[in-house]
């Protein structure tokens, strides 16, 4: 099994629009600062390169090709599902987590259910765990996505 966190929110828009907000507008809702962005002092722009095989990246200088690659996009089904790999800057090659987002039509609009799994690939002493036990680390990670999705809901 895999250690994971799941966060769900409802957006008052159709699934296609929820998917568009999540992907095209990622730099607007992805929170800023060292807690959320990938280089502490850089002012980057978050971007999904559309389609499977594309990437989630933070761009610092497009002309120089200076960017951070969060991970490859594995599933790109507009209005339905988005899956991408997620690596922190201090992850080794074999340390990779996966973010899986489903967009489900509901009466009020769209239920966005985000699952971030694969945390068991990080050893207990990995710096990304901040010295926290399993429960406390997952609580922190769940809270991280709750804050992110609260910002997304503010746009929906």
């Amino acid at each position: 099994m895999s250690a994971n966190v799941m966060v769900g929110i409802t957006l008052e828009v159709e699934p296609e629009e929820a998917f568009r907000l999540f992907t095209e507008e990622v730099d607007l809702w992805w929170q800023r600062g060292v807690k959320f962005r990938f280089r502490p002092k850089a002012n980057g722009i978050m971007k999904f390169e559309p389609g499977e095989g594309g990437r989630l990246i933070e761009i610092y200088d497009e002309a120089k090709g200076d960017l951070y690659e969060v991970g490859r996009i594995l599933v790109w089904e507009p209005g339905v599902r988005l899956v991408f790999e997620w690596r922190g800057p201090n992850f080794r090659d074999e340390q990779v987590t996966e973010v899986d987002i489903r967009f489900k039509p509901v009466e009020a609009g769209t239920r966005v259910v985000l699952e971030h799994r694969g945390w068991e690939t990080l050893p207990p002493d990995h710096p990304a765990r901040h010295g926290l036990g399993d429960r406390a680390f997952l609580t922190m990670q769940g809270g991280w996505w709750e804050e992110q999705l609260a910002a997304l809901r503010g746009m929906g």
């Binding site: 099994m1 895999s2 250690a3 994971n4 966190v5 799941m6 966060v7 769900g8 929110i9 409802t10 239920r111 259910v113 945390w119 068991e120 399993d134 429960r135 997952l138 609580t139 990670q141 769940g142 709750e146």
Partner: peptide, 15 residues
């Protein structure tokens, strides 16, 4: 509707 779920390495929901 589930709005937050934290699952440990053993697959058991912690919270």
């Amino acid at each position: 509707e589930t709005c937050l779920r934290l699952t440990g390495d053993d697959g058991v929901i912690q919270h």
